[in-house]
């Protein structure tokens, strides 16, 4: 509880000081006790709710630190962003649910399964690397 409070205070301080780069670390401090509690036997079913909530908090925090703009002018833009944010939060929740669901499948270990896992991890790393490089080159 104390750590969560520290994280919230840190987040408030980050928002007041408008330090964009400290938003994610502050959120990580808020989420750390929850993550630890879930990992050490807490109610895992809360993950699909907690993850999108953290994402929404982070995005709204970033949003609040962006340059202010007259509300009437930015109304359409704001609606588009809110829509995107909600859709992605929903998608994130579904992804968390899928992760939990896949983890709950009673599969026993073995060489093939381990190989599949290694291949999946390598593919994932390659995908992230490719997307990151593309973003760096074109962004």
């Amino acid at each position: 509880m104390g750590l969560e409070l520290c994280g919230l205070l840190g987040l408030a301080l980050v928002l007041v000081l408008a330090r964009e780069r400290w938003v994610v670390p502050a959120l990580a401090v808020v989420a750390l006790p929850e993550g630890a509690a879930l990992a050490l036997g807490g109610p895992v079913a809360l993950c699909p709710l907690l993850g999108p909530a953290l994402l929404l908090s982070a995005e709204l925090a970033f949003w609040s630190l962006e340059g202010a703009r007259p509300a009437r002018e930015a109304l359409r833009l704001s609606l588009v962003r809110i829509l995107w944010l909600l859709l992605l939060a929903l998608g994130g929740g579904l992804a968390a649910l899928l992760t939990l669901g896949l983890a709950a499948v009673p599969l026993s270990g073995g060489a093939y399964l381990t190989l599949c896992g290694v291949l999946a991890a390598v593919l994932l790393l390659a995908l992230v690397g490719w997307a990151g490089r593309r973003a760096l080159l074109q962004g």
Binding site: E34, G35, A39, L40, G51, L54, G91, T99
Partner: peptide, 11 residues
């Protein structure tokens, strides 16, 4: 544990 991974899945 799968919980930390599920937590960061939306990100």
């Amino acid at each position: 544990r799968i919980a930390p991974l599920a937590l960061v899945a939306p990100f």
